[in-house]
Design a binder for these strands. Structure first.
Length: 107
DNA sequence: CAGTTGACACCGT
DNA sequence: AACGGTGCCAACT
């Protein structure tokens, strides 16, 4: 079925609270570093999936909340990240490097 | 069945 | 350093 997406979901769900990851990191984890776009696609479908995907923990390589527009409210993603303890400013994670979590290198 | 899109990333200018 | 254009894989129309 969604073998590809399922793997992406598994990674996203593996993101610890207060941490975030990038599309490139996930794409590389699934074995397709060039398929970063697929990660975004999977997260787009994540809303249709039964499983709850913390898409707010996934940002682009710049640490910018690129998908905030996809949430119910444009501020929902930022609010959620702030709840996790992540500092977000101007739709961008301030200490992105500090909260960045690599699926291939969990600590 | 074929064409276009898509929450990105990387290289070149 | 910043901006623009190209490349990638799979799904959607």
């Amino acid at each position: 079925m969604n073998n590809f997406f399922d793997r992406i979901y598994d990674v996203v769900l593996s993101i610890p609270e207060g941490r975030v990851t990038t599309y490139g990191a996930i794409a590389r984890f699934i074995g397709s570093p060039q398929s970063s776009r697929m990660v975004g696609w999977a997260l787009n479908q994540s809303f249709t999936q039964k499983e709850k995907i913390p898409a707010h923990r996934v940002v682009n390589r710049q640490g910018i909340l690129s998908g905030k527009h996809f949430f119910e409210t444009p501020t929902a993603m930022q609010e959620l990240l702030e709840q996790e303890g992540i500092v977000v400013q101007n739709d961008k994670i301030v200490d992105f490097d500090g909260v960045f979590w690599d699926p291939n290198r969990p600590e």
